[in-house]
Nucleic acid binder design. Structure first.
Lengths: 253, 253
DNA sequence: TAAATAGTGTCTTTGAGACAGTATCAT
DNA sequence: ATGATACTGTCTCAAAGACACTATTTA
């Protein structure tokens, strides 16, 4: 890796054309944290890491780390993901979630974190790499059980879940959980597991195949789900879903 | 992988129970910026300030400033708003928009800014105070004309507008533009100006009065809009609008 | 054959869009 | 009276919910 550009970390000493930052600034440490979700073993799961240092030693936490000089925020997010989980490919979906900067959220000092939401299919999330020993999947329903998540990560996780649940209503983001080629039933299962709700297979089929640009039929079929062969689809160009898919009241027998 | 040695910013000198921030951190300056929108003179307008210092001296910019020690992000946003515009009351609606941290977005050094979206009625936005001389309203349609906005504020403004336009679809946020008591026609005018679209008065009336918890009738009437007296309403408890108000394709003759 | 899943069609209900008609003010 | 705006009602159409029926595989 080439050495990073030399920006003086002392931001107050960085004049440019006579303009400099005011000398009485609070310097904050900036980190990124990730809510990486996937569907595996018939459940919505989130990637957690076990903290190897204080504070919150040995407690589960969202993967993340400090932003480096000259590094963009999203760039830092995918780098941390690769380092902590050995993820080769960037996640299929990545978006900024929110920024958390309550003064006392980190006992070490002022640390502000920019949280990202990432969605990926199971095949792209092998968990194997340098620090990978400490990373593991946890069902979102029980992620905060036992020793609670470090820092304010329980809040960040809750916000990420709510974002994911609402995002798949009006966008094609749910396909980010799927393999490159998938059946309508597999996509429906994603919705059901993310929403904890049952959807009518026939109405769902009509909705997703009837929305222009959402799904692209490949012409090929699979029997991997059992029963009559189902057509395989790829995700289409449409990123917004209009009209939106309506989320039922959560009810999964 | 080795990190270049760098002078410790003072955030690293904040030990707590043996835990300290790593010494090779990049310290960043953290600021907040505001997209404060209001409806006045029959147009959607945004509050801008004229920059009094380099860089971008004399260019229009979004109001904002650096976060102080021990200060929460939203807290910093309302403080900056009060300082730069003399706004007494906090805005009726305030939400975090997004965080912008491209390395070169500020020529003075690494400055990351957390942007907020604020909505307020005209009555609460008098622009009178300490630094108020430099602040002014600009119609959003022409805000980026002439000398462009400083930094990446044109992007932030565009994101804020899009957020406001979509937010009023599925939430009661549009009432934040209204006075405490308002008529259905006044609320409709808000939607029309924010969306640049014409809405059918009768269908709009049916929609907003038929959605439980959205509007609370006061029993009193006004003739300030001319014609038959219109009932005055207050905003209700409902913060989400379901089903959503559908945004037509922008078309205002 | 039965069982399982894929896909199509049909009926009902909800709600949005379009627009007629009446009500109550100012002038 | 006229004109303006407030409000109610009615018709039509699009789309969601519920569910019957047929199609094609494996066991």
């Amino acid at each position: 890796m080439p050495s990073p550009p030399e920006p003086s970390p002392d931001t107050t000493a960085h004049p440019d054309g006579g303009a400099a930052l005011p000398p009485d600034l609070v310097a904050v440490a900036l980190s990124v944290d990730l809510v990486l979700l996937t569907v595996r073993e018939e459940r919505l799961q989130v990637l957690l890491v076990r903290r190897g240092i204080e504070p919150f030693l040995d407690r589960p936490a969202l993967p993340g780390g400090f932003v480096r000089p000259g590094e963009d925020l999203a760039e830092a997010a995918v780098r941390e993901l690769a380092e902590e989980t050995g993820l080769r490919h960037p996640p299929a979906h990545l978006e900024q979630l929110a920024t958390y900067g309550t003064p006392q959220r980190d006992p070490r000092g002022r640390v502000v974190t920019v949280a990202f939401l990432a969605l990926a299919p199971q095949s792209r999330t092998p968990i194997a790499g340098t620090d990978a020993a400490a990373s593991h999947w946890a069902p979102v329903a029980t992620a905060d059980d036992g020793p609670g998540l470090a820092f304010d990560h329980a809040t960040i996780l809750a916000d990420g879940l709510e974002r994911a649940r609402s995002k798949i209503e009006y966008s094609a983001a749910a396909t980010a959980f799927c393999e490159p080629e998938f059946t309508v039933a597999e996509l429906r299962r994603i919705y059901e597991l993310v929403w904890s709700a049952r959807l009518d297979p026939r109405n769902f089929h009509r909705k997703v195949t009837g929305t222009a640009g959402f799904l692209v039929p490949t012409g090929r079929f699979t029997t991997r789900d059992g029963g009559r062969p189902a057509e395989l689809y790829r995700r289409g160009d449409a990123s917004v879903l209009y009209p939106a898919m309506l989320r039922p009241v959560p009810r999964l027998p």
